[in-house]
Structures are given as C-alpha cells and as structure tokens.
Simulated assay, not measured.
Amino acid sequence: MDYQQSFAVSAAGMSLERMRVDISTLNLANANTVIGSGGATFQPMRLVPYAHTPLAAASVTAGESTFTSMIERTLSAPQARVEPSLAPVRRAYEPGHPYADAQGFVSYPGVDTATEMMTMMSATRAYEANVAAMTMARTMAMKALEIGGKQ
C-alpha cells in the first residue's frame, strides 16, 4: 500500500481548510472597514471548491486503479479558487460619521460575522480531522514497518 497517497490527501485537505480559515479571518478583520465616497474598499471573499466530475469507466485503462487515478487527478489540479462574495453592502445610520452620505448612512462591507465564525469553526474541525487521518496513516505505516522488520 502506498501511504504517500493518504498523506497527500490529508495534506490537500489541510491546505484547503487553512485557506478557508485565512479567508474568514480576513473577512472578519475587515468587517468594519468604511466604504469611502469613491466606493473602492474591501470586498468580502469566499472560497469556492472545484467540483470534480466522477471518473468515467471508459477512461480507466486495464492496469490502472480507479481509486489511484482519482487521487492523482484530484491532487494534481487546484482544489479551490477565491472569488469575491456577492453579499450586499451593509449600511448603518451614523449621521455624525465623517464618511456618512447625505442621508446619514455609512456603508460597510457585507460581512456576516456569524457566518464567518461558523466557517472558521467548521474549517478548524475539518483541519483537525485531516490531522487525525494523517496521524492514523502514519501510525499504520510505522506498525507495518515494525511487523515487516521482525521477519
């Protein structure tokens, strides 16, 4: 059994979850950034994973393992892309604010703090699951080496 594939799968999962945490952190850090009169300011972002199509039976050659080819194809392609969120701008009534418009409203990026916190929590849990999977694969590999060395 090739343990490098299981390590690579866990590493790819950890990388993806780290990106989710980084993006949520960036969104939360800029949640109260004021949108000035020019309109150019922080745009909330989100991580969009690429959808992988199932491996067609016709593309599998006689000596090729379906699971192995799916793993190699998945790990060779980018896992996700970062794109701007389409959340509407949040407006708050603050007439004394220097960036208030004529009606007294100040515009902030459309960051939902509850959603971002839930994203961070779920990404952290998924990261921990990938660490546990990698640790278990390492333990099994070490045990296999130990058993094989006693012969």
Rank of each mutant, 00 (worst) to 15 (best):
R90T: 15
R90K: 15
R90A: 13
R91N: 15
R91C: 11
R91F: 02
R91Q: 15
R91M: 14
A92V: 15
A92L: 15
A92C: 11
A92E: 15
A92S: 15
Y93T: 06
Y93N: 03
P95E: 08
P95L: 06
P95N: 06
P95T: 06
G96N: 14
G96W: 11
H97I: 08
H97W: 10
P98D: 04
P98F: 03
P98A: 05
A100Q: 01
A100E: 00
D101G: 01
D101L: 00
D101P: 01
D101K: 01
Q103I: 01
Q103F: 02
Q103H: 09
G104V: 01
F105H: 00
F105R: 00
F105T: 00
V106D: 00
S107V: 05
S107E: 07
S107R: 10
S107P: 09
Y108D: 06
Y108P: 01
Y108G: 02
Y108N: 04
Y108T: 08
P109N: 05
P109V: 06
P109G: 05
G110A: 07
G110Q: 11
V111T: 13
V111L: 08
V111E: 07
D112I: 07
D112K: 08
D112Y: 03
T115L: 14
E116L: 06
M117R: 07
M118V: 14
M118H: 03
M118G: 05
M118E: 09
T119P: 00
T119N: 11
T119M: 04
T119W: 01
M120W: 03
M120N: 05
M121K: 09
M121L: 15
M121P: 08
M121V: 13
S122F: 03
S122K: 04
S122H: 04
A123E: 00
A123H: 01
A123L: 02
A123C: 04
T124R: 10
T124Q: 13
A126T: 07
A126N: 06
A126H: 02
Y127A: 06
Y127V: 02
E128H: 03
E128G: 09
E128K: 07
E128V: 06
A129K: 09
A129F: 12
N130Y: 11
V131H: 05
V131D: 13
V131N: 10
V131Q: 15
A132V: 14
A132W: 11
A132G: 14
A133H: 12
A133N: 12
A133D: 07
A133R: 10
A133S: 15
M134L: 10
M134C: 09
M136L: 14
M136F: 14
M136C: 10
A137R: 05
A137V: 11
A137G: 08
A137F: 08
R138L: 12
R138N: 14
T139F: 05
T139N: 14
T139L: 09
M140E: 10
